[in-house]
Amino acid sequence: MYHFKNLSNWTSIVCNLSGTVSKVNISGVNLKGTLAQFNFTLFLNLTCSLDLSNNNLSGPIPPAIGNLSKLTYLDVGLNYFDNIIPSEIGRLTKLRYVSLYSNYLNGSIPYQFRNLRKVWYLDLGSNYLVNPDWSKFSGMPLLTRLSLSYKELTSGFPGFILDCHNLTYLDLSLNKFTGPIP
C-alpha cells in the first residue's frame, strides 16, 4: 500500500483513523488538466467522497474510476469533461450522490446506472447526452432528486422514473421528449 507522508495535514484530503484517505475535496480551486494519468489505484480505500467539481478539468472520465468501489459521493460537475460517461460508474454500488452536471459529456447514459440502487441524488444535466434505451433502466428506490435537463433528449418519457417512488425533485427541462407522460 502506498502512503503519503503527513497526508492528513493536507487541506483537501481527509484520512480515517487508520491513515487511509477517506475523502478528497478539490472543488473550486481552478485545477487544470485531465484525469488520463490519474492513478485511481492509490485511492481504492476512498470510502467517502471524491469532489473535483467547479474546476477546469477536461478530457474523458477514465473507466478506472469504477475501481473506487467504496465511494459514496462523486461530484465532477462544472468542468470540461468530454467523451462518454464510463459504464464502469455502474460498479460504484455504494454511491449515494452523483453529479456530472455541466460538462461536455456525450453519448448515451449507460444503462449500468441501474446498479446504483443507493443513489438519492443524480444530476446528469447540461451535457450533450443522447437517448439511451430506457427499457434497460430500472427504478432507483432511494432516488429523491433527478436532473436530466438541458440535453435535448428526443425519445419518449423515461419510464424508469415511475419506479422511483421517493422522487421529490425531477428536472426534465429543455428536452424534446415525444409522446405522452404516463
Rank of each mutant, 00 (worst) to 15 (best):
G139T: 02
N30M: 09
Y121P: 00
F160Q: 08
D171L: 06
L172R: 05
F81G: 00
G125R: 08
R117F: 01
K176T: 00
F160Y: 14
V119L: 13
K176H: 12
L17I: 07
I65V: 14
K136I: 01
Y2Q: 04
L7F: 13
N83M: 04
F38S: 03
S99E: 00
Q112D: 15
T144F: 09
L174M: 09
L122V: 06
I161W: 13
N83E: 03
S155A: 15
S22M: 13
V21F: 13
S12R: 12
N166K: 15
V98E: 04
I89D: 01
I181G: 05
G66N: 06
R91C: 04
L71R: 02
D123A: 09
L92P: 02
V130N: 13
L44C: 00
K151Y: 07
T154A: 10
F43G: 00
Q112M: 11
L35E: 00
L170E: 04
L105Q: 08
L153K: 04
S126I: 05
G107Q: 02
T11R: 15
R145L: 03
L42I: 01
L44Y: 14
I161N: 09
H165S: 13
F38I: 01
I61Y: 08
A64K: 11
Y128F: 08
G179N: 06
N103H: 04
T178R: 14
S126E: 07
G66D: 05
S138H: 11
I109N: 08
M140S: 08
N30S: 14
N39L: 00
G77M: 01
L95F: 09
L17F: 12
S138P: 00
R91T: 04
F4E: 11
N67E: 11
I13Q: 07
N166Q: 15
Y2V: 12
T93W: 07
G90R: 12
T34V: 02
H3E: 00
W134H: 07
V29I: 15
K94P: 00
L105N: 01
I61L: 13
G139K: 09
Y169K: 03
I109M: 13
P110M: 12
L50N: 04
S108M: 11
G28M: 07
S135T: 15
L68E: 10
